[in-house]
């Protein structure tokens, strides 16, 4: 690697002569060693999933959760250094809370991604800190219905407000991925961590970015997510699968971020294992 021995990689926020910040690149390496995380934006919601490598037989099964709820309608999963991820989530919760305090309304997924992208970026600016050793996937469902200002009393005209732009829809499912540099993009399907290459290849086969929007339903996406993580998984290690989802108000989670019900997760895992075996036979 050209970075080693030059001295330009020994401190954060230092540019090398060709304009790179090596410490940020090394932080990405920390992400690439972590268990695979994926997110899928579907027709009716978002699905998040993570491959949790079982590092010890003494771990309590299914007790250590990795996907966190940041606000009612927002979930975050990440790959890389887990304590860094927990810090990220705490900050994301603070941001969501602060937004509600000032604007009396839930933060939009895009706005949270923007705030957290800014936060991550700030940790690339100073020699006194190091970048985050995580890549985070933020999923959310912004209410499609009109929401009141928190705490407001009364209601407008019974016929509803006039002068709305006709035919325009609002809200819906959103998915963002934020890298250690602070860079973030919106995604149809996102993957990070050790198995990201294989996972991305599988995600690209799904019908997520068509002109009419994603065709996949959440229930299908849960099964795809399980299958993809099994494909991306390095066979000789044991792992736990954790999955969460967020639907709109009329869906299974009623706009909230929840763990995928046990029965559905187990069914998805069964199908994933089956698909895996069929592939082996080929």
């Amino acid at each position: 690697m050209t970075s080693i021995g030059t001295g330009y990689d020994l401190a954060n926020s230092i540019f090398s002569p060709d304009g790179r910040n090596f410490q940020v690149e090394y932080a990405v390496k920390a992400v690439e060693n972590g268990g695979t995380s994926i997110g899928i934006r579907c027709k009716d919601g978002v699905v998040l999933a993570v491959e949790k490598l079982v590092t010890s037989k003494l771990l309590k099964p299914n007790a250590n959760k990795r996907i966190a709820t940041v606000d009612r309608h927002l979930g975050v999963v990440y790959s890389g250094m887990i304590p860094d991820g927990r810090h990220f989530i705490e900050r994301a919760r603070d941001e969501a809370r602060a937004w509600r305090d000032t604007f009396k309304t839930p933060i939009a997924t895009a706005d949270l991604a923007s705030r957290m992208g800014g936060y991550m970026q700030a940790y690339t600016l100073y020699q006194s800190v190091r970048p985050f050793g995580i890549t985070a996937i933020v999923g959310g469902f912004d209410s499609a219905a009109e929401t009141p200002v928190d705490g407001e009393v009364g209601n407008g005209p019974a016929c509803g407000a006039g002068g709305k732009v006709a035919g325009k829809t609002h809200g819906g499912p959103f998915l963002y991925m934020i890298e250690p540099s602070g860079l973030y993009w919106g995604y149809y399907g996102a993957a990070t961590g050790k198995g990201r290459q294989a996972a991305k290849a599988e995600l690209e086969k799904l019908d997520l970015g068509g002109p009419g929007g994603p065709a996949l339903t959440m229930e299908e996406a849960v099964k795809e997510a399980a299958r993809i993580l099994y494909v991306a998984h390095d066979d000789d290690k044991e792992f736990e699968l954790e999955m969460t989802w967020i639907s709109g108000a009329d869906g299974p989670t009623k706009g909230a971020h929840h763990e995928v019900p046990k029965a559905l997760r187990e069914e998805a895992e069964r199908l994933a294992k089956q698909a895996q075996e069929e592939k082996m036979e080929e």
Partner: peptide, 17 residues
């Protein structure tokens, strides 16, 4: 090595010594 002096420096492998 050069990467183990403090807790704000990643090694090229992404470790914090």
């Amino acid at each position: 090595n050069n990467y183990d002096n403090d807790s704000v420096t990643f090694s090229p492998q992404g470790r914090i010594f």
